[in-house]
Amino acid sequence: MLTTSGGTGGPDTVRRLNVPQPLRVEAGDDGTPRRVQHRGQTARPGRWRAVDQVRERYRVEDRWWTSEPVAREYFDLLLDGGLPFAVFRDRIDGRWYAQRDG
């Protein structure tokens, strides 16, 4: 299960960088994203963009020995127009998140 601080601490607190952002994804039968709702830097829902290419797909399994295991499947995508975009599906809660690997 993914747990995040959401990046919203008090004004003097430490803020996490690159916190996964929930987003909507339409995936095919094989689990590969077909379209993502990309909102860029705005808070609005954003428009749906087609996935042109899945450049890489990999899994991260971690902390399976604890009560807070991490199980994610990352997709390194190229959206229409050539925009690089990374998403992952949390394999525990089944939700999709955007997150760059930086």
Binding site: D12, V14, R16, L17, R100, G102
Partner: peptide, 12 residues
């Protein structure tokens, strides 16, 4: 870290 959100934080 294998999890990008754990690699760096912002502090004042």
């Amino acid at each position: 870290s294998r999890h990008p959100e754990e690699r760096a934080v912002l502090i004042p």
